[in-house]
Design a protein around this nucleic acid. Structure first.
Lengths: 232, 232
DNA sequence: GAGTGGTCTAGACCACTTA
DNA sequence: AAGTGGTCTAGACCACTCT
């Protein structure tokens, strides 16, 4: 008889507490849905929702017939918002500025084609640009776009709008791969970001696909003052 | 009359298709749950589940009374596995080695207390250690643990097991904040990682809590060869 | 074969927000 | 005030997997 009304939230939190306080030990089998429903005075569907949330969070492992166990080695995941440079800057309350450096159709270097899993050397649209926050260089973007998948890219000028924003409206993606790393600034990067060559830079790389077709590869370089923060 | 049985999956996918193919345009109001339930020949709860999944994925925005709209600027998220250094190394097929550098109970500097939102200067357990992959330095870890929340930490030696692995079994967390950045290696970091001072390093920082209680702050430094990769 | 979780239904009430 | 989504219930059947 609890004072709180039975809801999937209170049930979820109570079960979470039992796991945290080791009332339910790692690896242990916990009661079935029906038993829990009786205990909490709720419908099985409500308990099920609570259990599914905890399973999605990685703290429970559920198998039909075998029951539900407290995860032994919880594989915990965290999420981050896929960065959209303009929004990132405006969310800080800074003024966003964009500057196109170059935009050409080129035969892409082998390294680039390989990263995009293009078998043959291909003509790709190569865009280089700079994003500024309050007139201070924030990110240098070096991007290759596959016109096989995004034919419009050949005709876009990218003078007033960054390729990131442009692509959002012209080529949704179904898959993406992200890489983050630290590197030393090249001479060109240093000049553009107003730092010294060899200074550490934070680099993000993103490849996106629609189904199996590679859309774009982008290399994003930030000065070392940059922080990528995420929760939970 | 569809050949497929109505399930939240098929309903979700069909709605997803309508959004991708711009049958439902960005910003547009889509039919209410009841109308959709009639259309798909399903119960409202089933349609609700499909809609909630799409809302969680960021492609729909739902408001009571106002209805459900296709997101204008979908906030897309990606996930990454919360790194566990031993598993990271072993997953590459490398031999994991661990080396304790120091482990003391200390009055923590103000900066550290502030990051952990501890009002008063506190005695914390300070652990410094090195993780190696195939005998090559992989990560330097500098960690502060709050013994108020994890009393056992005072008695752990961390000689044979890294604090990361130890904490997994002794202090689960409910919340975490991650920060990633690039920095220049300090003299100490350079010595430990066998690189030169000033070389770029990839730094991850993680703070974890149980409820509102801060558990630990860890600073993880990798040589610039490190890559953090994630999908979708 | 049997037991567990996965999902669906039909109906109900509630909470929030906007008109 | 009213309409929309949010959640809960009770019951049912199904799918998977272990024995």
């Amino acid at each position: 008889m609890s004072t709180e009304r039975a809801s999937f939230r209170t049930i979820r939190d109570e079960m979470s507490r039992r796991i945290a306080e080791r009332i339910w030990l790692p690896g242990a089998l916990i009661p079935g849905e029906e038993a829990l429903a009786r205990e909490f005075g709720a419908a099985r569907a409500t308990v099920n929702r609570a259990l599914q949330e905890l399973a999605r969070a990685g703290v429970l492992e559920r198998k039909r017939r075998a029951g539900t166990r407290v995860a032994l080695h919880p594989v915990r995941e965290a999420r981050f918002i896929i960065p959209r440079v303009r929004q990132e800057i405006e969310a800080r309350g800074s003024e966003y500025r964009y500057q196109l450096l170059s935009c050409e159709e080129e035969l892409a270097p082998e390294v680039i084609c390989a990263r995009l899993s293009l078998r043959t050397a291909s003509m790709l649209v190569h865009v280089r640009c700079l994003h500024l926050a309050d007139r201070v260089p924030y990110q240098f973007e070096d991007r290759w776009i596959n016109p096989q998948v995004v034919p419009d890219a050949k005709f876009a000028t990218f003078r007033d709008m960054g390729p990131n924003e442009w692509l959002v409206g012209h080529a949704p993606f179904s898959n993406a791969e992200f890489t983050f790393m630290a590197a030393a600034a090249s001479d060109e990067e240093a000049g553009l970001l107003q730092i010294r060559p060899g200074d550490p830079v934070f680099v993000g790389e993103r490849i996106t696909w629609m189904r199996a077709e590679p859309i774009t590869l982008v290399h994003m370089v930030h000065p070392s003052s940059h922080r990528m923060v995420t929760q939970l």
